[in-house]
Design a protein around this nucleic acid. Structure first.
Lengths: 195, 195, 195, 195
DNA sequence: CATGAATGAGCGTTCATTCAT
DNA sequence: CATGAATGAACGCTCATTCAT
């Protein structure tokens, strides 16, 4: 990895949590220099503009979710258990010190960038659709394997799961209490059991 | 209503949709003067600062939701039908020309202001909790009236409903298509039927 | 005159000589705040951007030439004497303390802005063409009045006069000495005598 | 020619037209790296700073004029014809694709650098004076050879010729049309005929 | 109460320049 | 010698805010 690539990575890692917490408009270049210890000139030496950093930071945040889910999922064997991984991972979003302090980047970005930053929004929508398709495929495999009922609507279940998971993020952000999280995990468990 | 009160109301009505679309950090005082046709001095004559307008705008946006729900709910008699009102109202968030173009203000505000604007976040959390309690109470009345099963957990159902409703907002914002909306309305209908 | 108009005028008067000396690219907003004692915000409160100030400054500089020429010209009666006014006025361009320290704004602007600032260049070209036409008309009147020969090409004479006058500006700028100026005034005198 | 000398030459050739078109203040180091394909470090390895490149570029641009004039002049025998060479060469300044697209470097540099870059201005003044002296000498030779009248003021004629030639550059830049050029060539021809 | 005019800090970005490799 | 990577100052411009009128 060249020096430039290392610095780019470094900038992304240091700024990604800030973008996730403060949003695109709320994150300034001064925030970025403070977090990295680099100068503005150095950041502009490695990225074309603030946009490019924001897009890279979103991709990075987005990938963190994926990694957390995949590593945990590999440990489980039944499809039902695999689906339940999400409930565990999403309950930790927003927790201080977790890898994604600011909550789910997809939710954050679609919410903020909807009317202000079309390119960033497009990336977040792509990520949301990819997520939905991954879930749909997983449920489809469960059906094929005979673990889930044959008359299950895989896509509808996937969309519903995502709604419940983002609901967890929202309520955890809102109150920080575990009560609401438990409610939603219950609903999620019931949904998965009925498959 | 005094002239001062009328002007305040006017400013709130004109700026509330902007705050809902662009967020707190993304909305500038120039946006506000442009939307109202007033001068900056005039806005500062009626509000202490941008914060105060943002708080009032959030309250206004928040109340719009309540009004839409209440007027529709009054027309329905069974508790099951009353609960279904939300599905109708939330499906229209994000639609151009609707009273709440930018989506659900509670979701928007908790998502954006979580780490940047504690006071605004507190108001949004209050609104979310009040909403949850209103729903919980409504379900409780349905139980008391014998329409819903006695062993239903009212609060859990309320939280789950909110997650599905915010899910609708998210997916409508993301894709603009009705497919995902229908999936979530299905899940919502099933949830309410099983009460 | 409103306060805004007075401030605009003030900004133009203070910045116009700087634009004429340093050019568009060489004049910074800091130059402008220093010259006026105003803040950047104040300048942007009165002009849309640096371009708008530059265009106004060019118009102002351009008009200064016209005023100097017209007041002097009014004192002379014969067309030959009227034409000679230019020689007097242009010899003072570039002199420290004169109203147009930086030289002829038309020459400066066409030279600098040719490949860098099309709008500004267009204004300068307009001014040059207007000047040529004014001169052509003046010579035409001299012909009609019987003071000049009938076979004189008015436009060719006008263009030649302008070249000699801009030559004065160039040589005065270059050396500051009067020798070259005298040479060109001689040529100009001969040209006018032969009309 | 060493490698260092070759690189220096290369940088000068590639950047000289940019300096002539955009001026000293308007030409950035990024313009220079873009034009040469070299890095900033490489340019600083061959020149002390931007100034030094600008001075070399001016010298290069200046010499281009001289070359064009000398090669053409060698083909002509009478002094009158030799003097007319300038009219041909100067009419092509500013023409796209010509070796000196941005016009006459002497006029450009004295106009821009008058109040901003004394060293560069000094070089341009030197070049102007050298030009004047070359012209004066040429006319002197013509007198000595008996081709021109004995009472001709050689220096005055030289200065006047330069003014008419720079006038051509100015008007060609301004309008791009040949009409004004023809007027000035007429005046120039008349001036030379009368010698 | 509203306006018009100003402020100063901060914005994202580009500048000329340096220097270890 | 040339490069890649950095720097800090300055760029043009917008921000939220103030206050005399």
């Amino acid at each position: 990895m060249s020096k430039a690539e290392r610095t780019k990575e470094f900038i992304i890692q240091k700024t990604a949590p800030i973008f996730n917490k403060k949003g695109y408009a709320g994150t300034s270049l001064s925030d970025m220099t403070e977090a990295t210890g680099l100068t503005k000139g150095s950041i502009y030496g490695n990225f074309a503009d603030k946009d490019e950093v924001a897009l890279a930071a979103f991709a990075y945040n987005s990938s963190l979710m994926g990694v957390a889910v995949r590593t945990e999922m590999a440990k489980r064997s039944s499809y039902r258990d695999k689906l339940m991984v999400y409930a565990d991972v999403y309950g930790n979003f927003g927790a201080v010190g977790s890898s994604l302090e600011g909550g789910c980047p997809i939710l954050n970005t679609i919410t903020e960038a909807d009317d202000t930053h079309p390119q960033l929004k497009a990336r977040a929508v792509d990520a949301l659709m990819a997520w939905k398709e991954r879930l749909t495929a997983l449920i489809g495999e469960g059906i094929k394997a005979g673990e889930f009922r044959g008359d299950v609507d895989a896509e509808e279940t996937a969309v519903t799961m995502i709604a419940l998971l983002e609901g967890i993020v929202l309520f955890v952000k809102a109150t920080g209490k575990q009560t609401h999280r438990r409610f939603l995990v219950n609903s999620l468990t019931r949904l998965i059991k009925e498959l």
